[in-house]
């Protein structure tokens, strides 16, 4: 009969020091959202718009020479990067796209100098080092769940950050939603939110929860959380990797700043 405790101890520490110390977020080589360099964009070219499955890229309604880029719809499929003839869109390792305002996922020609939005309910000190999450899958492909489940593996070990998943929405501070919100999951999702005590927060995790993603529209799929729940943090990604999820949780808790403003990753 094997001694599992000794077996585990013999392996030593598997947990990363990131983000407190050390650079190893475990995402070496992982591609994120494409980087956009508008000065290289060739006017009148529609190559990227044609291949974009989720309409993250579109022609600007006011100016046909300009591109509209919404990272909230981007599934990081890299098709636009491959299609772009002038390298205006290039592959990047930028995956930490958590923002507090949905508008910050839209590429903006000029950066506005407005103050970063304060959280709807400022997260008090009490919650900053202890957060309980109720996850609701509102119609995902299971990719987001796969990465959420990874948060409790020995490498990320989410508990070390004082963040826990909980079964009952009554005990939860944060509703973490994945999926496009199908017609059948809409009611259970809203019921879970209603069951939560105040103060409560909402995180839209993954491009489907932000905008509907590849499933948006159609006869049974929704368009994500916009207009449905008061979202505090938006995190696009397909799926967001575990480090991006941790970063989003820390952004919510005001323990890390967002890295994206006006669609630009720092």
């Amino acid at each position: 009969m094997p001694n599992w405790t000794l077996f585990g101890l013999a392996h030593g520490t598997a947990t990363t020091d990131w983000p407190a110390a050390g650079p190893d977020a475990g995402q070496e080589g992982v591609l994120g959202m494409p980087r956009f360099a508008p000065e290289k964009c060739q006017s009148g070219c529609r190559e990227c718009v044609e291949v974009c499955v989720t309409q993250a890229l579109s022609i600007h309604p006011d100016d046909p020479a300009r591109l509209n880029l919404d990272y909230g719809r981007c599934i990081a499929c890299q098709l636009c990067v491959e299609a772009c003839p002038t390298e205006a869109l290039t592959a990047s390792g930028n995956w930490a796209y958590a923002v507090r305002e949905r508008a910050d996922l839209h590429w903006q020609q000029a950066l506005h100098t407005t103050e970063a939005k304060q959280l709807r309910n400022a997260v008090s000190r009490t919650f900053r080092s202890s957060l309980h999450i109720r996850h609701v899958d509102a119609g995902s492909c299971n990719g987001c769940e796969s990465e959420l489940q990874a948060l409790n593996n020995p490498f990320y070990n989410l508990h070390r950050l004082g963040i826990f998943f909980t079964a009952s929405p009554r005990f939860a501070d944060l509703l973490l939603v994945t999926g496009s919100v199908t017609y059948a999951m809409r009611e259970p999702l809203l019921a879970a939110y209603e069951a939560m005590a105040e103060p409560r927060w909402v995180l839209a995790a993954g491009t489907c929860a932000v905008s509907g993603g590849v499933a948006a529209g159609g006869y049974s799929s929704g368009q994500g959380l916009e207009g449905l729940l008061p979202v505090d943090v938006w995190l696009p990604g397909c799926p967001p990797n575990p480090a991006a999820l941790i970063h989003a949780l820390l952004v919510l808790l005001e323990r890390a700043p967002p890295k994206v403003k006006g669609g630009r990753h720092e």
Binding site: A14, E28, G29, V30, N153, P239
Partner: peptide, 23 residues
């Protein structure tokens, strides 16, 4: 449980280095 999830994570990280995508 921890060991299985850790081995899974190692393969996903390898996937990321090899293809740019953990999945």
């Amino acid at each position: 449980n921890a060991e299985g999830k850790w081995l899974e994570e190692k393969v996903k990280q390898l996937n990321g280095r090899l293809t740019g995508s953990r999945l």
